[in-house]
């Protein structure tokens, strides 16, 4: 990340900075405490949670995780989630990049209109179209299949991808493409050899965003998939909240297992997100 903003001229920390730090630390506690509390609950037993919800676990009940993993078939669910989200990611980025490239760099009458058209897609709540979509897909035999789930996921990922990538493509200097054209590069060459490789950060940001969005998506997955072997992670999570009894500790253990991949991926790449946003979304 580029060095930014004004540095204080003096070496000692000013009182105002101290105040800011205190504020930021309190805030950080507010952010982390509930998550850590969830971790603590997931290691207790149900009776212990009811008796003293905020006490740290006396005995670590790691078996909650084992039970959650086996009972909830989290392994299979993890595979399904990775598969569905992975394919969605690749396809939506490719299609999104193509459309974004045409909108951002090519010259045609409706490019602005097309951009707006895709953006309107962001406003459609998925609930509205669930029924017509499901009925249609059922007729085509696309329900209860992971492939069928990918199609709406890809579609709903497109607006965000196009929005972000258009910004990235627009920010690329035009001379690059002109030079390439002079070298005899056609439009497809420009796209594949110049635009795509130069847009890595853009892919990274939009990819991460759509991946996270789909990873957490519940409603479509719930309605579309019936076969227990094809369910995604969020759907399996809901089963820990049973109709007549709630098993809190296993529920939290399952939630932790489910969010762990996101947290790990996030911690590894969070800096790139900002970097990407800096160069991309700003110009969107």
């Amino acid at each position: 990340m580029s060095k930014t903003v004004v540095k204080s001229n003096k070496n000692n920390i000013k009182p105002i900075t101290m105040v800011i730090y205190i504020f930021l630390i309190i805030l950080a506690v507010i952010y982390l405490a509930p998550l850590l509390w969830m971790l603590s609950v997931s290691l207790k037993d149900n009776a212990g949670v009811m008796a003293a919800p905020f006490a740290l676990p006396e005995v670590f009940h790691f078996e909650n995780y084992v039970q959650a993993w086996t009972l909830g078939k989290l392994g299979q669910a993890l595979i399904n989630s990775v598969l569905v989200c992975g394919v969605t990611l690749i396809v939506s980025m490719f299609f999104g990049a193509m459309a974004a490239f045409a909108i951002a760099r090519m010259r045609w009458k409706f490019s602005e209109a097309m951009h707006t058209f895709f953006l309107i897609g962001m406003m459609v709540p998925v609930h509205c179209i669930l029924i017509p979509l499901f009925v249609r897909f059922a007729k085509l035999g696309l329900t209860n299949s992971r492939f069928g789930l990918m199609i709406p996921y890809i579609t709903f990922s497109l607006p965000m991808t196009i929005f972000l990538l258009t910004g990235f493509f627009k920010s690329m200097p035009g001379e690059l493409f002109e030079a390439a054209a002079i070298d005899g590069c056609g439009i497809y060459g420009c796209f594949f050899r110049i635009a795509l490789p130069l847009c890595r950060t853009g892919f990274f940001v939009s990819g991460l965003m759509t991946f996270i969005g789909n990873w957490n998506e519940l409603l479509l997955a719930m309605v579309f998939i019936s076969d227990p072997m094809k369910k995604t992670l969020p759907v399996t999570l809901t089963y820990f909240v049973g109709p007549y009894a709630t098993n809190y500790v296993q529920m939290f253990a399952a939630i932790i297992i489910a969010i762990a991949p996101t947290v790990i991926v996030y911690c590894m790449f969070s800096n790139q997100i900002v970097e990407g946003l800096t160069t991309g979304a700003v110009k969107g």
Partner: peptide
């Protein structure tokens, strides 16, 4: 360039 995204958009949305 626009066709795949547009087609999915029209059909699914």
């Amino acid at each position: 360039f626009v066709a795949p995204a547009l087609a999915m958009f029209v059909l699914v949305l």
